[in-house]
Design a protein around this nucleic acid. Structure first.
Lengths: 209, 209
DNA sequence: ACAGAACGGTATCAAATGATACACAACCAA
DNA sequence: TTGGTTGTGTATCATTTGATACCGTTCTGT
């Protein structure tokens, strides 16, 4: 896609014509495939990405497990990159592309000056921080207070709802990675929920009843 | 304390004289005592507080347990209040004063317009979001991946270090509340650490060796 | 067509954490 | 001084989650 007004059909958040001009001037379009690593833990962030299409999965990793932080979808940016870029610090998590993805990137040095010049950009930044913070608080609360079986069901319901579907397509291994537990625990819990007639299990897919 | 230039001896972050004037004009000084509730979960935030002196403990609560999010100390604000206030939403956690505290509050409606007018305020807001974000990410990682005994020791070391002391003054019950576990688990773990000569236990106080 | 990889389910055992109870010591307010 | 409260430590048991292993089925790449 050429970097033209098509861009602003995908980025409806920004309103100032001059700002759009600067985005065109300083921005660079990149395409990624599933599996590409966008952000690495411990890495400096020089450019801020805004997703135009597709998704980036942002997560934390320990020696033998990982856990989902959030997904960056169309019109969103990665707040950890934003926070890191703003103060020229390192990222504190990983970001991997989960489906074909198009991204607009621009130098991180522009973040602050744009905040002072363009209210819609400032509002966007605050909105991103706010949304992620709420998501993170919610996840934190789940991990701290809820049993893993409850979290499994909540995840399935939320994901199905967000996709406007009754099914969720992912393996037990993937679900375990999202929630920071092991594949065997997930298989055990899902089988129990199937016995209780809350879900129906297929290979690579889980249907909510 | 009268709201004069004394204020800016405690708020060194802001540099624009005009901004200082607006803080004096719109700000209001309040004092609180230990135990006072500043923020309630589910409550709208109309005013943003900046702590001048003292501390506010911000935490989440479930039916029978709670867990620390962060402490708001001098020159800091509560990011959850900030996020809630900015978009006129409800707070997602509780804030309670832990020692005699002085706070400057001003209407939340001023946050955004000040961001556009005063770079030091904008930088402050971003800094607050960034700091809290990092803290939350770190706490999340601990809860998700680390055993409770490791988290106990980390908490004690961090707290002692932040206070420039070798001791931490708090009960087992309070430590349990900070970490989202039970008093019995904490007593058991601390006793074991004492046996391993990593700490020394006193009533209401824990000394690091 | 076939070998290897991936997925799912179950079994068994261990470790970690939570629940409940109780006893004792230290502290504090009257 | 004293009674009540708070704090601490231990015991016992239950539940939850993790580790390891194994087996059978399905899928995929050559």
């Amino acid at each position: 896609m050429t970097i033209t007004n098509d861009l602003f059909k995908k980025l409806t958040f920004f309103s100032e014509p001059e700002f759009k001009g600067e985005l065109l001037q300083h921005g660079q379009l990149l395409s990624f495939n599933k599996g590409d690593v966008i952000v690495r833990d411990g890495q400096y962030v020089k450019f801020l990405p805004i997703v135009l299409k597709g998704a980036i999965r942002v997560f934390q990793q320990s020696e033998d497990r990982e856990i989902l932080l959030y997904y960056v979808r169309a019109e969103e940016t990665c707040t950890i990159s934003l926070a890191a870029a703003y103060f020229n610090n390192k990222s504190t998590s990983h970001g991997v592309v989960t489906e074909p993805t198009e991204v607009l990137i621009f130098p991180a040095s522009l973040i602050e000056q744009w905040q002072l010049k363009y209210p819609s950009w400032n509002r966007y930044v605050m909105q991103m921080f706010r949304t992620r913070y709420d998501q993170l608080i919610s996840s934190f609360q789940g991990v701290a207070f809820e049993h893993i079986d409850v979290r499994v069901l909540e995840y399935l319901k939320n994901t199905a709802h967000n996709e406007g579907s009754k099914s969720v397509c992912l393996s037990h291994q993937q679900l375990a990675a999202e929630l920071g537990t092991t594949r065997v625990v997930v298989s055990r819990i899902l089988k129990e929920y199937e016995r209780k007639k809350k879900i129906k299990l297929f290979r690579g897919r889980i249907e909510l009843l």
